[in-house]
Design a protein around this nucleic acid. Structure first.
Lengths: 143, 143
DNA sequence: TTAAGTGCAAACTTTTTGCACTGGC
DNA sequence: GCCAGTGCAAAAAGTTTGCACTTAA
């Protein structure tokens, strides 16, 4: 987490941007979040402690975080996009409960491999992918 | 295609809805489209021939088509959602060129199987999934 | 000092909705 | 004739932007 703040500072200065109090607050609150956050949710969390911070700043900062690789924008449909803390080095996909909304992250090397193969078969060079599995989680299935 | 119109009529009457001229026009134009259409695009196509049809009607009809299984809503990000003609019976995924925007549909039974397995490992019962592979297509890679 | 950043409100984009009128059944 | 559907315009909902003021470097 400390290294992520470091990364942010590096990026900021490299780009000739400025490290403002707001950006630090928003970054900290973002890193504190375990799950996938909407801009709205992050805005409210930030607001609880720092009521002066505006909506636009949260949007702008979240974009900045995505730009520098600390955040990843995810669009699961349903209007707004969610951001998650980027786990550097490995790609993961999502398992989403259609009933309670729980989101579980997973990795599967075999699937990744097959994807690359499919892309190749169609003459594509794969740059990214996204896989979401929807279903009912254990809790929701039993009840 | 004729059977799809039939399906639509059946659904309409079963639900106690009405088969209006607008709905027929929109359905026809939708079925004519080969690729993935945004509501906006469909609206413009419909408008060319029938300038009296409103935006809201296109939205409402597209929702109706999705409801009765004739259309599938796809959200590739980028603001608006796209609809595609639902190919009944099999599920397919998408390969998307990040440069020219071309969308190719594919199926891969092995990947599907692995997905079901992943869901199972996490106690999920899979109901649906979505897989998108992003990359550069042959044309865009070479140029 | 000075250019980037902020907060606010207004603008924009996509989608939905309220309502009076129209038209299938 | 009834009630669902339509077209329009207004409202929502999410996001972006213009601008005058503030602040990090």
């Amino acid at each position: 987490m400390a290294d992520k703040r470091e990364m942010f500072r590096n990026y900021i200065s490299q780009q000739g941007l400025k490290l403002t109090r707001q950006r630090e607050i928003i970054l900290d609150e973002f890193l504190r979040a375990a799950a996938h956050l909407s801009t709205e949710e992050l805005y409210h969390r930030v607001r609880k402690k720092h009521s002066h911070i505006g909506y636009a700043t949260v949007y702008r900062t979240l974009k900045l975080l995505a730009e520098c690789g600390l955040a990843k924008e995810r669009d699961f449909g349903g209007g707004q996009s969610l951001y998650e803390v980027a786990h550097r080095g490995y790609h993961h996909d999502h398992l989403i409960c259609v009933e309670c909304g729980e989101i579980i992250e997973f990795e599967n090397a075999r699937i990744e491999e097959l994807q690359k193969q499919v892309a190749h078969e169609h003459g594509f060079v794969m740059t990214d992918h996204r896989l979401e599995i929807y279903g009912r989680c254990a809790k929701c299935s039993s009840s």
